[in-house]
Design a binder for these strands. Structure first.
Lengths: 225, 225, 225, 225
DNA sequence: GCTTAACCGAGACGGTACGTCCAGTCTTCCA
DNA sequence: TGGAAGACTGGACGTACCGTCTCGGTTAAGC
């Protein structure tokens, strides 16, 4: 729901008020479908313009690169999905964090991570998401944007949930929530991005288990401390 | 009596025996230096050929793409580094796994992860490594190769070290070493790849601590509380 | 309502109305000067584009080959020359045929052929003309075009002049003008094209003499001898 | 039948005595067949070498260019044809000139020119001959060779025949035989090379008729008409 | 008859140009 | 004036050949 167009313009900024909503939607659709069909590297701005029935200049006027188009298209897709999901399940009990909070941290995490894995494997989601991640790898400025706008909001939910658990005494006091969150989120990210191993519910369950209770044999026993 | 054509080729396979070592080295050097100077996306095969003083066809004869060139160049670089390192520190006490094994799992892991982070931040290493990761994101076949040849060998060392610790009774019996290894390796990977947070020695130390002993308050410990 | 696509194109025909006149002229100039400087075979499309300050695609968009470019450039050159000549000598008395018609066939032919030889030896004219002829030798379709557009118009003038002489009773009745014209035109063409002998005014005068009056000793003439 | 190898060598001249006759023949055959199949411009030295089962260097060692290979191959072909023809018709009565000399100049010329036209239209002959002519158009040095070795010998026969007729009083005394010969030879050459008109027996008969007796009405003959 | 120098097939090499595809800019004409 | 259309300059693509250069292997001359 941003009013100001975050995308800066080269010469004199175009008048966003007169912008064609029709073209914008067509460009989003064309970009996403092309990436799904022929992959991101073979998707070209010319191709997007042609499929969208739009002049190339219309794209260059409002976006600075293929990656920017994709990022907005992807965010738009997510918004639509979120709206649709919200309509279907109107009364999901969630904590202040936005993640379920039944009081049982392990169960909550397992549930959410299973759902996350399922979403990551959705083909409509996978191609653009990977493309954005790839772009970020070689363009630090883009990466910064990508992380801030797309990645961080999701990751913060986990940190918030852990903080809440910490306040409830279920997580040790000194634990840094951001680091702790990485213990189960990053392994999923890496297996999804790089395919370093199978990515399934058993795996995510194990991650939660190990992260919560540690892998060391009887660590910090009562006699210890 | 033609030798076995180990190199897979498109048309009639070139004769690897008559390959010019001089050109191969020059191509590696040119590729790595260009990637360092102008970045991977702006590095072109023509540019590599020009800087290496080599015909384009010589590149296309032996490699299928810019990414393949880079991968071999990077592997060659690693080999050289490894050889150089081995010469400098001839008698490092390592376990059968290839990682240090002093008996103190936490200390060993912290030491290795700190070193890993330092290496990841080496500018000579960073640009090509990120480029390879990026390429893998949009080319599954390449990703498979990349993971198998470059990533997995490193990751397996951690799993082996954990297995050894498990046999020594320092890690709980049921723990899956591959999953456990991801607990401290993947967070580092993600912070390096995507910049989701600071990547320093304090972070890696925390990861080891959390992964070994868990983040839950007195986990599964009846006497605790 | 797209204009009639007079220009035959491969894919979707480009819009000739939006063609850049500037580029077209620059391409003509570059092509002709390069052919003059380094010769036709060593003239490349890339070279023409570079000297003309034009993208290669602009050439490929409007022409199918180096030879086509040259043909149009050469025709353009001829048009300019003709226009310039017409301005300089506004009132040259010519017959309906376009060739001088003073009533003295032999004198008229000698005059025109001498001028033709002089033109053939003009270095600005020679290189491209020879190149076009050469191209026609190995490309029948091109030859057809070349003959029809460039060669035949000139040759037809001679046939017309002969026909006019025939009607005036200066040429025997049964004579085929096309064949007769070849008697003095083709020898010039061959000496120019292949260098089978010296090409000068004496030669062309002789040709006219021989062709008009025959080489046989008092042929078919009972009263003669 | 020259003993000295007319072809100059770049570095140290190769030893012609040790030359492989087998390869030479194979190269001739490959060159001629390729030119017949795909045309001269698309025939490459690599292609000739491949079809001949010969290394590229073997061609570069003995010839300086594709055109030189073709020229020798063509001359070899002509020699073989001449030998074969001589065997078939052992006792053709020819004059000292090498052309038939029955005393009837017109008839002799018509006969030979008809045969020449037939030969020009032989597909085995046409492709290489046109290619050689084309090459000569853009390479003066090659043209000189081509004319001297291949064209001139044939043309000289006509001049010689005309000189003989001149001595017999059938051709006017002042006539230059070289110019006179061009009157019927060059038109055939041009129609064959450039396709400026139909090339058949009727045409060549007409050429002889016109050249011998002139096209002018009763030329220079006061008593006539 | 045994060396030895060369020609030979083969093909990798540094290059040049090909003809195609897109990037990003600019222009024209329409709504 | 935003947008559809697309021509423009420019540059990289991957391919085809060029002419040069090794590399064994064969083969004929000279010892």
């Amino acid at each position: 729901m941003s009013a100001t167009p975050a995308t800066p313009a080269k010469k004199t900024a175009p008048d966003a008020a007169r912008r064609s909503e029709r073209s914008r939607r067509a460009i989003y659709d064309a970009a996403l479908s092309l990436i799904g069909e022929i992959g991101y590297p073979r998707t070209t701005i010319e191709g997007i313009a042609a499929r969208a029935g739009v002049g190339k200049q219309t794209i260059y006027r409002w976006w600075g690169s293929k990656a920017e188009v994709l990022m907005e298209a992807f965010m738009d897709l997510n918004e639509q999905n979120a709206r649709a999901a919200a309509e279907q399940h109107p009364g999901t009990p969630v904590g202040a964090s936005g993640l379920p909070d039944t009081g049982d941290l392990a169960a909550d995490l397992k549930r959410v991570l299973r759902a996350t894995v399922d979403e990551l494997k959705d083909p409509r989601f996978e191609a653009p998401a990977r493309a954005l991640a790839a772009e970020g790898l070689s363009d630090p400025a883009f990466a910064e944007n990508f992380v801030r706008k797309l990645l961080m909001p999701g990751l913060d939910l986990y940190a918030a949930r852990l903080r809440s658990a910490q306040e409830a005494g279920q997580v040790r006091a000194g634990i840094d929530p951001e680091t702790a969150r990485d213990l189960f989120v990053s392994p999923i990210a890496q297996r999804w991005l790089q395919g370093t191993g199978p990515l399934d519910h058993a795996y995510t369950d194990r991650l939660v288990e190990y992260a919560l209770y540690g892998i060391a044999a009887r660590p910090r026993d009562p006699e210890a401390d």
